[in-house]
Design a protein around this nucleic acid. Structure first.
Lengths: 104, 104
DNA sequence: ACAATAGGTAGGGGATTCCCTACGGGTCAA
DNA sequence: TTGACCCGTAGGGAATCCCCTACCTATTGT
């Protein structure tokens, strides 16, 4: 499974994920209509997303439908876990400072 | 502020963040000791992290200490939010299927 | 059978990434 | 002040990224 972070590094690929989340599975041409980009370029982005496990693909007739596969994003969320504890502690510190200010 | 996702795409940079989380702020040389890489290359990674707002830097004498700044990671967590709802729904579906199986 | 449609692959070119070595500026210790 | 140390920047090279056009196969409709 290719690197999920690398797959997410590209804005076009993140936009594809957003479209698939909002509208559900879609064929390639329908996705391509929303980008200022030729279809073969989008096809390559879709391959990167598929290699990262972020989308699945299945053919219906001559179309290929791509669908969101969010499991790798759950892994990203797990990766964020330890950092989340850190930034929450920071926010708590900030709140304490604010609470300690002379009333105004 | 540069693209946080692009900054996270590189394994060395993610490792830097991990080191800063585990050990707190550190000078460049101490970070560089943990990579099979020349120091100037690590300096460039640190600049990318700083441009993305993921680290802060302050000099003490002739050393420069880098520290974790987790706020952009909180933004990544926010970005994940809608997808999290999606994968949780998936897990719930899976649980239903398992519950519906004939007892075994 | 033939034309049209959907979409992947090949190959190329310019931009960017990621490493390197060489070097320069600032700080500390003798 | 002189040398050692910390670290950033310059510049270059190989690899990768990201777009393109051209082309191919597979499926559908006439």
């Amino acid at each position: 499974m290719a690197d999920v972070f690398a797959a997410l590094a590209n804005p076009t690929r993140r936009e594809v994920l957003r479209l698939l989340l909002e509208r559900g599975e879609q064929p390639v041409q329908q996705l391509a209509d929303h980008f200022d980009m030729r279809r073969p370029s989008l096809s390559e982005h879709l391959r990167v997303l598929k290699d990262a496990g972020l989308v699945t693909e299945h053919p219906i007739g001559r179309q290929r439908f791509y669908a969101l596969r969010p499991e790798p994003l759950a892994e990203v969320a797990d990766w964020l876990g330890p950092y989340e504890r850190f930034w929450r502690a920071r926010l708590a510190d900030l709140r304490e400072v604010l609470d300690g200010l002379p009333d105004e």
